[in-house]
Each structure stands twice: as C-alpha cells, then as structure tokens.
Design a protein around this nucleic acid. Structure first.
Lengths: 192, 192
DNA sequence: CACAATAGCGACCGATCGGTCGTATGCCAA
DNA sequence: TTGGCATACGACCGATCGGTCGCTATTGTG
C-alpha cells in the first residue's frame, strides 16, 4: 500500500462510492466508468476496480448510497410526525424541499436511475425497482394508517410519486423554480 | 451505389432514423451507435455515418421523429375536440392511451430523453427542452382558452405533465397496469 | 455516350471501455 | 525479524466507440 495507511482502505472505497454517486446523478449510472473515477480521485484505474471487481457492483454501491441519502433527506425529517396524514404532509414538505435544494446536482438520483434502467434487465434494474417499490409501499402504508385516507391510499401514493417526478423534470430540464411549490400543492390536494 | 437505386437514398435514411428511434427508446439516445445501427440494418458503418455525419445529428433526427410520433398519437386525436376543457379531456385520454398501448417499447421516448439529457449541455438537450416546452405551452393555451380553467392554467399543465410521467414510470419500472387509469383520473381531477 | 454527383463500402485511426495480470509497498501477527 | 496479506500500481488485453479516407458502382444530366 504505497499511499494510504492500512485502515484507510474503507475510506478510499467510501470516497469512490461518493464520487460515483455524484457522477451518476448528472451523467447517469452508465456514465460511471472506472477510468473516470480514477482520474477524478487521482488514483490508478486498477486501484478503483480492485474495490468492486465489476462495474455493476460499483453501480449497485452508488445506488445504495443514493438511497441512504434519499432516506435521510425525505424520510427521516418526516418520521417524527404522527403516522397518517400528518406524516404524509411532512413527507410532501421534505420531498419538495429535497428537490428544491437540489441535493443531487443532476436532479433526483432515483428518478434518473429509473428512466435509465426501466427497460433493461439485471441486478441494477432490480435494485432500482426495489427502491421505488419500498418507497411506494411506505406511502401506501401511511395513507392506510389514516381512516379517512385509507380508501384512496393507492391513488395518493401514485399522485405523490407523479408530482415528485413532474417537479424534478420541470426543475432540471426547464429550470422552472415554481415546480416544487406546485408539486407540494398537488400532494396536499391529493390528500383531499 | 451498389445495392439500392438512386432514389432510395431517402428511404435508407428513413430506415436508419426509424431504427435509431426504437433503439433510443429502450437504450437511451446515447445508446444509439453507428455500429449498432449498421449491424441491425445490415449495412456498413460508414454507410450509416454518411447520412448524418455526426452522432449528434443522428440523435436530433431520432428525436424529431419521436416528436412526430407523439404529436400524431396524442395531439392529433384531440385536435378534433373543441378548444378548452373538452380538448384537455381528449388529450388526457389520448395521452394515457398512448402510454397504455406502449407506442414506444421502452416507454415514452421524450420522458426518457428528458431524464438522460436534463443536466447536460448542447443541441440535443436544447431540442429535448424545446419539445417539452412546446407541449407545456399547448396545455397552458388550452387551459387558458376556458374561462373556468384559465386562472389555474399553469397548475393544470404541471399536473398533466406530472401524471404522464408518473404513469410512464409505474408502467415501465414496476409493471403497474393500473397506472394509466390513475393518471387519467388525476388529470381529470386537475381540471376540477 | 461521357461525366459529375452521389450512395455505400472496407479499411483504418486514436480514444476509451471493462477487466486482468504481475508486482511493489506497507501493515500486522508470529 | 520474518512472512503473509491486503492495497494500490503500471502495463496490457480485446472490444467498441465516433469518425475519416479512398474507392467502386450507379444514377441522372448534358
């Protein structure tokens, strides 16, 4: 180990994943290449490869990291609210705030990954679908926890997901800064 | 010209654009390569390149073709309806039908292109943004044509775009066949 | 019938891709 | 102190990328 000390291996891996996540957010998961990351992090390509073995493993690691960021930014702030309507309102606020603040430079990582992999096959696609499915199920569960919302739980979950995607696109592609506000309004309207 | 007759040049070009559009729908616009198209169409790579010169020109041609398909599938069926609310309802029906029928094998071409290029620069990104902007403006114009909807025109356009994207993702990534129905309901609800 | 214009071809270019290999270096345990 | 293990390295592999070049074969026109 020429440069870093032994215990820093995990830190190196961490830096690679972090960088891969940022690159993927703007260039797509397929745009994450060993050579690119090696250049960015000023290390050899083989050194990067060594930590993951395959590009797919690296993509999965970046995806998992992005999921953690999303959870921290959107779920955790809302978890303090009471289950049901209150929590859904909190989620709507945290979610649109997360979009407005552009936590990922290239827009919502999971939305981009979804578009990129939605018509392929393999572990990455499965992981992306699983992440969305989990989040969808959280929304449905919260709606079902509220007797008034329960009958419309599926539609509410759909509306929330749609509004977030609409806001993401309006922001990223058209630079429409009013989009998070409209999405928040739309989510509130979905709750009735 | 060894294989085709002189007047068939336009036909050859047409076939390339058609194929590029289909490939881009599932693999993304960046996944359209000269070599791939040459293999698919059983011609030489140089023969494909000759019609466009650069990959970017080919991407723009595929994008333009996809816009024509979208217009034909969503706008034209609705154009017969009276301006305002009636036409927006017709658009909602044609649009969700277009999604349900999976006109593009990889889901809505323009949605995929938007995700792929929303944080880049250059003519392709500009063309994608322009296509979305045009469609957005059509929706706003129709809403404004109806005195009852006019005050909410911008929000209605946002909701329509969001619902379509939500349905596209639910269909493509999660295989949720109920999504077009939910999107149609959501669009109708947006009209109040 | 000659001739310019054009469509398509095969060969080739440098760059980059994902990934492998052997090797040098540094840490820790025996 | 020595030996094993893990980290990172440089060099290299075949494949593919976007794109160029010179050539042939065919066409419509003079």
């Amino acid at each position: 180990m020429p440069r870093s000390s032994f215990a820093d291996a995990a830190r190196t891996r961490d830096a690679i994943v972090q960088r891969a996540m940022l690159v993927a957010s703007t260039e797509g998961l397929e745009g994450v290449t060993f050579g690119r990351l090696a250049t960015d992090l000023e290390m050899s390509k083989a050194g990067v490869v060594g930590h993951f073995g395959t590009k797919e493993a690296l993509q999965l690691a970046a995806l998992e990291r992005a999921s953690e960021v999303f959870t921290k930014e959107v779920w955790e702030p809302a978890a303090a609210a009471a289950p049901g309507r209150a929590r859904l309102v909190a989620i709507a606020e945290a979610w649109t705030s997360y979009l407005r603040r552009r936590v990922f430079p290239g827009g919502c990582f999971l939305t981009a990954a979804s578009c990129e992999f939605d018509d392929r096959e393999g572990p990455v696609r499965d992981a992306v679908a699983a992440a969305w499915r989990r989040w969808h199920d959280v929304l449905v569960r919260e709606a079902r926890a509220d007797p008034e919302l329960a009958p419309r739980a599926e539609q509410i979950a759909f509306d929330f997901l749609a509004m977030a995607q609409g806001a993401n696109q309006a922001l990223q592609l058209l630079g429409d800064e009013t989009a998070p506000r409209r999405a928040l309004d739309g989510m509130r309207r979905a709750l009735g």
